[in-house]
Nucleic acid binder design. Sequence first.
RNA 1: GGAGAAAUGGCAGAGUGGUCGAAUGCGGCAGUCUUGAAAACUGUUGAGGGUCACACCUCCGGGGGUUCGAAUCCCUCUUUCUCCGCCA
Length: 423
Amino acid sequence: MLQVANIRANKEAYIEALKKRNFDAAGIFSEVLELDETRRSTQAELDDTLAESNRISKEIGLMFKNGEHQKANLLKEKTAGLKDKSKTLSEKLNETSEALTKHLYNIPNIPNDLVPAGVTEDDNVEVFKEGEIPVLAEGSLPHWELAKKYDIIDFELGNKITGAGFPVYKGKGARLQRALISYFLDKNTAAGYTEYQMPLLVNEASGYGTGQLPDKEGQMYHVTEDNLYLIPTAEVPVTNMFRDEMLSEDVLPVACTGYTPCFRREAGSYGAHVRGLNRLHQFDKVELVRIEKPENSYAALDGMVEQVKDILRDLKLPYRILRLCGGDLGFTSALTYDFEVFSTAQDRWLEISSVSNFETFQANRLKLRYKSADGNKQLAHTLNGSALALPRVLAGILENYQTPAGIKIPEVLVPYTGFDMID
RNA sequence: GGAGAAAUGGCAGAGUGGUCGAAUGCGGCAGUCUUGAAAACUGUUGAGGGUCACACCUCCGGGGGUUCGAAUCCCUCUUUCUCCGCCA
């Protein structure tokens, strides 16, 4: 959520920047500023009314103390009008504030200067590429065939127990996934991130805090009996730890990492590209979350990108980094880098990580601020990124490491798996 | 799940209808003293909105109500604690 004061101060520059998202902000900005104007004048009027009735109440109190009951009762009658007035005004204030917030919820974050203009994912800009795409032997298979051949992931069994998109990992498949999670967490904690285990269900307030609610309600599983939501990413519980917090400057930067399963309804997204592990309703992910001072947040973003690079180098997977264009950029993000690993057998790139700087966009909604030594209070910057999302990394490993003799295990994982080949 | 108690500033803890945004203690900050530190003493110290700055408004777990006036009374929700039941 943008800050109204910033919209007022940078209206033209913001309108220009939002064009990169193909978002025409001129109209909604005018409405926002007008509503804010109304809100403030209504507030002022209400304050005056309340001040008046506070003053009278005190007077009445004094009169009763002095035994001037008649005088007091006379004055009481005067307050009736003030009461009505303040009731009307506070209703108007609520309506205006609600309308204002609703408008603000509909305005996406201002893209960073680095964000290229563009409409679809085809306009994303490749900024880095590394790793060799292996030449596979004749008869190499996509991961869902490999999963069946070596009996390590059972999609049908998941269908039976729950439904499509809930695979069952088995034997060395299960072990490999657990190895990856441990390895990612070790790697992240070694880089200074503190490990967390978070609740997998969150309340409504948390959903609003990170912006899943109210708009993307349909993407989360909703436990209606208790009004809780299954998390679509660890970002939700982790970031919400800091909701309504005033951090002291010296705890920054905050760096968290956590493994959680993620649950996504993915309503309506079915088709050729969702086979196997490509898109699931439940999957595992290790997430990074950082809270930074504004002046450090872009250096921190680069640091997170390096962290993910480091992991992919360790795993010796061919990958590329894309800078998302305005059209593909997430609603809340100012700048996002997507990591894609090459799926050899499918001959396509698979997104495995998304690293973003939200600047103050999330912090404003969360009321996440910090106090500097001089007592100055301001919104912090929040960032997050996947390090990494499991299923597609698994798919990449299965496909890229396949040999006629079986699937080799990346060297760094062997201490975690205890075996070096799936055969 | 049942029965009871509670929720107040960074923390502890008073306050049961009228100068209470809130005593007191601890902590924090500033000063006195000291070569320096500690101790002691003195002062200061919640948040949000608003204003050039004041004024002023809001906030005592959340929401609603009674009243001229609510931290204080009523309703409701949430959370915590104690006892009972159940349980990995």
